[in-house]
Amino acid sequence: MLSVEKQILYLISSARDIDVKTLVDIYEARDVSPQIIRNSLSRLKKDGYIESTERSRYAVTPLGSEFIQTINRKPLLIEKTWDGVWHMVMFEVPEADRKKRDAFRGGLLQLGFGLLYKSVYISPWDYKEDVLRLADNLGITDWVTIGEGTFVHNGLTPEKARGIWDLDALSEVYLTKREWIRGHFSPSLERLLQEEPLDDRALFVRFLELGETIAELGLSDPILPEELLPAEWIGRSCFLECQQMLRTIACSIPEHSVYRTFVSRITAN
């Protein structure tokens, strides 16, 4: 799913029911064309994430709600204590169903699994419900095996984890994002917050922009427990910095604003 589609799905689930014109108006400020919005809505509907409630209005489906819950749940792992149990997914999908196999592999990587051996993926976190749902949607449950336990020989060290999840490359991503946040985004936001009256639409555009960045980081970062991370790891502090800034933006949008509904999940916490 493209990033704009994920964000539109998030907005629809926040508002529960929304019309196309509202979405077009929102994304006009981000230079996203109306056609891209309509194409995204068509794909989301085709994939079963949203449904038409009436002409040009959409609501999220149970499948769409499950997807949003999965995305929202991953950042919560930052504060979670790991119980030391590893979760494994093994599969052998026939070559004739290669597209399904590739889609399944891509879904596992987005959840945060790492490739231990060929077709053997591991995660310190329990994603079995998400994995089973993904396998079921692709029609490959008979070729997928899920297990959990601990390693009794040749277990994973931070050095091995660094290679399995390519944490060096991910660290570069975080360094680039932190430079952008501190050098560009944050100063621009501060100027915006000092304006009188507050421009709620401009604030909401910043909310969407930062939210998209956080979503990208969440999909790239397996959110490994501290025991498996390098001592110099900056991912956790950078991610939390972005989340705190997102909350600041959400709480700064006036309660009477038409955009307040879309940030209610953030302001309620």
Score class of each variant (00 low, 15 high):
6 K>M: 10
113 F>Y: 02
226 E>K: 12
190 E>Y: 10
241 E>D: 15
221 D>H: 02
236 R>K: 14
85 V>M: 12
262 F>E: 10
102 D>Q: 08
100 K>D: 12
249 I>R: 06
242 C>S: 06
148 E>S: 12
166 D>S: 08
51 E>L: 10
192 L>Q: 09
1 M>L: 11
65 S>H: 03
7 Q>I: 11
98 R>S: 11
148 E>K: 14
88 M>D: 00
221 D>G: 06
22 T>D: 06
219 L>C: 05
116 L>I: 03
64 G>L: 12
36 I>V: 15
64 G>K: 12
105 R>E: 08
130 D>H: 04
98 R>C: 04
129 E>N: 01
227 E>K: 14
71 I>S: 03
224 L>T: 08
32 V>K: 00
137 N>S: 15
245 M>D: 02
82 W>N: 00
197 P>E: 11
269 N>E: 13
60 V>E: 02
154 N>L: 06
38 R>V: 05
203 L>A: 03
120 V>H: 10
53 T>Y: 08
188 S>E: 15
168 D>F: 11
222 P>E: 00
238 C>G: 14
213 T>N: 13
205 V>P: 08
186 S>L: 14
35 Q>L: 14
259 Y>M: 04
164 I>Q: 01
5 E>V: 09
116 L>S: 07
143 W>E: 10
6 K>D: 15
109 L>H: 07
125 W>C: 00
173 V>C: 11
147 G>D: 05
63 L>D: 01
132 L>N: 12
65 S>P: 00
226 E>V: 11
149 G>T: 00
131 V>F: 06
5 E>R: 10
230 P>M: 01
181 I>L: 15
205 V>L: 15
136 D>T: 11
98 R>I: 15
4 V>H: 15
76 L>N: 05
224 L>F: 09
69 Q>P: 05
154 N>P: 01
24 V>R: 14
215 A>R: 13
16 R>P: 04
105 R>N: 15
81 T>I: 13
